[in-house]
Each structure stands twice: as C-alpha cells, then as structure tokens.
Nucleic acid binder design. Structure first.
Lengths: 200, 200, 200, 200
DNA sequence: TATGAATGAGGCTTCATTCAT
DNA sequence: GATGAATGAAGCCTCATTCAT
C-alpha cells in the first residue's frame, strides 16, 4: 500500500519534472512570453489540462525553475565558503562556481531579465536569483572592506549590483569567447577595480 | 495653400509625437509586451485606428523611440570627443554624458532588454542602442590600450561589453542611490580595474 | 462664364473618369472584394475623400462600369440588327460583336459573377449585363423559332441562358485559345445544337 | 479507455460536421466573403474559438466542403462509366448524375466561382471541382471523337469547358424550371451540337 | 489524475466613412 | 471641389482556463 502511494508520488513527480524540462526548453527556444502553455505541454507530450494539476501559471513554472537553480548555486557557494581564504580569493571562487552553474542553465538568466520586466503578475516573479546568492556576495564584500582588502569608498551593494550586472549581460553576449571565460575576465577587472590600492 | 498643407503636416507631426510619448509612457508603465496598441492610443487620447496612420506595429514605435535616443546620445558623445584628453578622462566623460541622457529616457533601456528577447519579428529590433555608442566606447578603449593607459590583457570588446552591462542593469537598480551617481561609482571601479598598473 | 462652368464640369468629369479607370484596373488586378476604396484612389492619384464626391460606394462604381459596357454592347448589336438576315446569321453576328467588346473590357465579366454573389447590398447590383443584351438575344431566338429555323422543343430563355453561360465562363478560361476564338467555337456548337433538323 | 477515446473522437467528428453544415448554410445564405467565422460558429451554436480547433481558415472549410462533394460526384460517375455504352449515352448519363448531386449541394458551385475570384490565399483554392470530373468528361469526349461519334473540328477541352459552363451558370439560374431539368435541356442542345452529322 | 474540446476575452489589423481645412 | 487624418466597427486569430469524461 505504502509502495503504491510512493509509486504514485513518483509518477506525479515525474510528470512535474517533464513539464519543467519542456518549459525550460521552450522558454529557451522561443522566449518566455512567446511560449504558450499548450506549447509546453505539447513538448512535454502531455495533455493541456494536465498543466494545471501541477502549476497555476507560466509564471509559477518560471519561479520553480529559478528556485531550483538558485538552490544549486547556493549549495555550491556555501560549500566553497567553508574553507577560509582571503576575500579576494573567495569572491573569485564564488564567481567561478556561479558562472559554471549558470552556464549549464543559461536559459534561466535571460528569462529573469525579460520576465521580471513588468509582468501583469509581478508578485509572482521574484526579484532576482539572489536569495542566498546576492546575500553571500554582499557578505564577502563587506568582509573584504572590513579587513581593508577592498576599497571602502564605494558602497558594497553597488559592487554586488555590478557583479550581478556582469552575469546578466554576459548571458546575452555575442562575442566568440565562452561564457565562463568571459565572466572570468570581467571579474578580474572588477577585482582589480575594487582592490584597496595600499593593500597589495 | 502651402500654408494649409504645412499646417496639416504640423498637426500630423504633433499626433505622431503624441503617440510616441504615450507609447513611451505605457511601455515604461507596463512593459513592452504588456502594452497593447489600444492602450497606447487610449493614453494618447486618439482612436485605435489612428495608430496605423503612423506606425505599422508596436515594434516600429519602439524602434523609433530607440533611434531618437540613440541620435541624442551619439550627438552628445561625439561633441565630447572633439576636445583632446587622456583616454581615461574621455571615457569617464562619455559615461557621464550617456548616463545623463539615458537617465532622462530611462524607459527605453529596459525595453531593449526585454523586447529583444525572442520577438516574433526579431529583424525589426536592432541589437542595441549602440550604433555610434558602442563603437565610440570601443574606439576610446583601443586608443587607451594602444598608448599604454589601459591594460591590454583583456580584449577591448569585453571591456565595452562590461560598460554596456553597467548601463543596462543599473536602469533596473532598486538601490536608493540616483541612477547617475550609481553609474559614476561603477565606472570608477571599472576605470581603476582597467588602468595599466605601471601607468600611474 | 459659361465656359468656366463648362470647364469645371469637364474637370469634374475627368476626375470621375480617372476614378472609374483606376477602379477597373484595381478590380481586374485584385478582384472586387479585395479592392479597397483607398486602393482605387491611390491608383487614381487622388485623395480618399474625393471618392465620395462622385460615388457613394464601390458597388456604385461597379454598376457604372457595367452600365457603360452594356451601352456599348447594345449600340453595336442594335446596329447589326438593322440589316435583315437569317436568325442564325444574326445570332452569330451578335455573338461575335459581343465577344469583341467584352474581350476589350474583360475585367467586368468576372466581376459580375463574383460581385453579384450575395452582396450585402444586393439591390445595388443589377442582375446581369443583360438589359438590351439578353432581351436582344432572346428576341432573335424567338424569331428563329417562329420561322422554324431553330428547334422549338427547348424554351428560348434556356437557350439565352446558355449563351450567357458561354460568355461568363469563357472569361475565366485558362485554355491557350483566344477569348474570341473560344467564343466562336462554342457558339458554333450551340448553333448546330439549336438548328431545326429538318430545316437545312 | 479505448471506448472513452472513441466517444470523444466521435463527438469531435460531430462537432466538425456541425461546423461544416453551418458553414455551408451561411455560405449559401450570405456568400463566402460575406460570411464571418463568428457567423458560422453562431449558426453552429458553438464558441468562436472552437472553429480553430477544426479548421485554420474559412478557405479550408470551403476546400473541405468542395472535396466532399467532389468525392461523391466522382464515385457516382465512375460507377456509371463501368457499363459500356455509346459516348453520347455515357455523356448524357454523367451529366444527369452530376446534376443530381450538385443540385443537392447547390451552394458549393457558386462558392467556387466567387471564392476563386482573386483570393488573398489563392493557393488554397483549388481550380475547380474537376479532379475526377473534368478529366472524366474529357475522356468521354475524346473517345466519342475517336470513334466518329462526336465532331472533331472543335477541340475536346473547349467542349469540356462548355459543359462546365452549363453547370456553373445554371446554378444561378432564376428561371422557373428546375435545376436538373434545366441542365438536361442544355445538355440536349450540346449533344446535338457536337454530334457528327454523318454519324446518325 | 489525465485529457483535450470548448470557450470567450483580448489583441491585432483593415477599411468605409466623416469632417475640418 | 479636394484633401487626408481620424475614427470605430468588425473581422481575424491566439490562448489561458475550465470542465466533463
């Protein structure tokens, strides 16, 4: 009996996952607003009505996809933070980790930028990927400023925002260079720009 | 007779302007894809059908708005470039100028990011605001690298892209700080990050 | 003074004619229902509003074009009828005359077939090109039947309708043969088919 | 389960049929271009959107209606052709058969004439009802000419076209006589007109 | 739970017609 | 009389959402 319930739960979970994957694929292919629920479900090989057994709107799907990515990123980054290093090293490491994960789920980033736009249902769209991400970066920067490693004449949230901006726009880059390498170079510039001059 | 025609043309020009302004307002308020043509024309206080006397699609309106801004930015920047200065000074000046103009037409920037998304009519959406903007920045950076003022271990197009990213995402910033000041601080970091270390 | 009025009338007449010609051209090019008033007036090189100084609807234009053709055809045919001949000769002659004129204004025939369809304003569309055409044919046939030249076991209006049908559909013919020759052959068949067998 | 699906498919088929019938009725009532999709669906007692679950345009509906009729006609005619008779008899029989079927679906014929007009989507409108109809007639005529039963001084395609023209315009006839009788009389004339004089 | 047909609101676009100049 | 910008009705079509099976 318990197994049967488990099996059912598993099946349900599978359908949900199928929808999420199909949605990700369609979002990447046609963009968020040009993707219809019918389109997603067709890609998923499921009936249209089934969608509403798992989600109540396209926005919710997007939110879920984002949450998943966010959790992955957070986990990786938190793990990295456990070993003690200089703020610079830590920040660099975090950036590399993030870049890698985002690269593997690239579709999600553009989505955020476009979907967050001015949706009719803005409450359903989280501000950014940040929770557990933005905070972490900001914490590292604060620490770096506190110990004199980073310049203090620029507010930490500005610096965090700048890091963010690098991720967001690099996802769109048309340059020949790879996403991760592109991020690496920009982070290098940023790190050199925020390093306290007397420090080195 | 000529006057009569002139008068009419003038009125037509005004109507066009009214529509453009209403569109800008609505785009800013609800976002590009959430703005309907009916909405624009209602905001403009004109009949729906009138829209098609001036534009053939929402995309064309956006393109027109963008072109207008682009031209303003280009003019300002080109004027700034005529006086000879160090690459650093020039870049800083350009950034300040651009920031000012973009600040006054803030709505347009988010538009580009969202509209470019995956439109059904992508050919109608120019890649960015850049023509005469991106090129200018890149030229300044090249010159700075050539004379040893800027680091050469990062390709100039990466740096240009980074400047772009600052504009794009700062337009969305929720921080308390003003747009122009925000840009100023980020540009400061960037300039410090790309300055050749031996140079100073 | 009188001249001035005449001149004005002439001018007015010219504009009217210009519109009629443009309409004929557009009808032929795009079909009746796919032709817009704006399209006609653009082809005429006149302002849209001007249309309503001369006609009150597209249907009226069509009616006018048809009336013109009808009058031409009638005139020719009546002239032909003045000389006395056998009914067969007369019918053949009429058919040839009609074919020639219709060929020169081919566009009008298809129009009738399609426009008469089920227009919203059916009262404005005359039944056919016939007045002074259908009647004439019918009279010739009646005469032919009366003098034993044509078979009498088929009502004359059926025969007239058959002649009509030849004109109507031949206007659409995709065959290589010319319109007039095509008509000639079909009329030959028809004449042989209605000739009283004992007569010859 | 299979039954359930079957039931649904059956219902779907019924809805499709309902729409086709409503469309036929509306086309007949108001003509093709004066019939709106909303009108059809209202006549069908269904929601507007439902239309697009079955067809993608009015043209497709027309095409479907025509195809159905064409198939019926072809079947009947082919059956008639299996018994061997003289070309004259065969042609007469075919004409009678066709007349009967067309009479029962009279609406479709005018449609073809009007719809073929100059549609914006001409590729979607087949040239005529002919496939398996025009060809058949032409074959009979060729055979009749070959065996000296029909006159050979008129190309067979002209004769076929003439038969066609009889059907097309008789569908519009305002005469008191019935469609089938009307056709019968005209075909009699035609047959007499194409019979080789020496043959009888 | 899965399905997919039905629905109608809402967006886009065309166009005949009006009217101020 | 000539003009053409303004208009809104009306048609087309898409799509999120519901609901009976």
């Amino acid at each position: 009996m318990a197994e049967r319930i488990n099996l059912r739960k598993q099946k349900k979970f599978q359908a949900r996952q199928t929808i999420l994957n199909a949605a990700a694929q369609q979002f990447e292919l046609h963009g968020f607003s040009n993707t219809s629920i019918a389109g997603i479900m067709q890609a998923a090989g499921l009936g249209v009505g089934t969608f509403y057994n798992y989600f109540s709107s396209k926005e919710e799907v997007l939110m879920t996809l984002a949450k998943n990515l966010r959790e992955q990123v957070s986990k990786k980054i938190l793990a990295a933070g456990e070993v003690k290093r200089s703020a610079t090293e830590l920040l660099e490491l975090c950036c590399v980790c993030s870049a890698k994960l985002i690269d593997e789920n690239r579709f999600i980033l553009p989505l955020f930028i476009s979907a967050s736009e001015h949706s009719d249902k803005p409450e359903q769209i989280p501000q950014s990927l940040s929770p557990g991400f933005r905070e972490l970066f900001e914490e590292i920067i604060l620490r770096g400023q506190a110990c004199g490693e980073f310049r203090s004449d620029v507010p930490p949230n500005i610096i965090t925002e700048m890091i963010h901006s690098i991720y967001q726009t690099t996802a769109f880059s048309k340059l020949e260079i790879s996403f991760q390498e592109n991020i690496r170079l920009k982070v290098k510039i940023l790190l050199d720009g925020i390093r306290e001059k007397n420090f080195s």
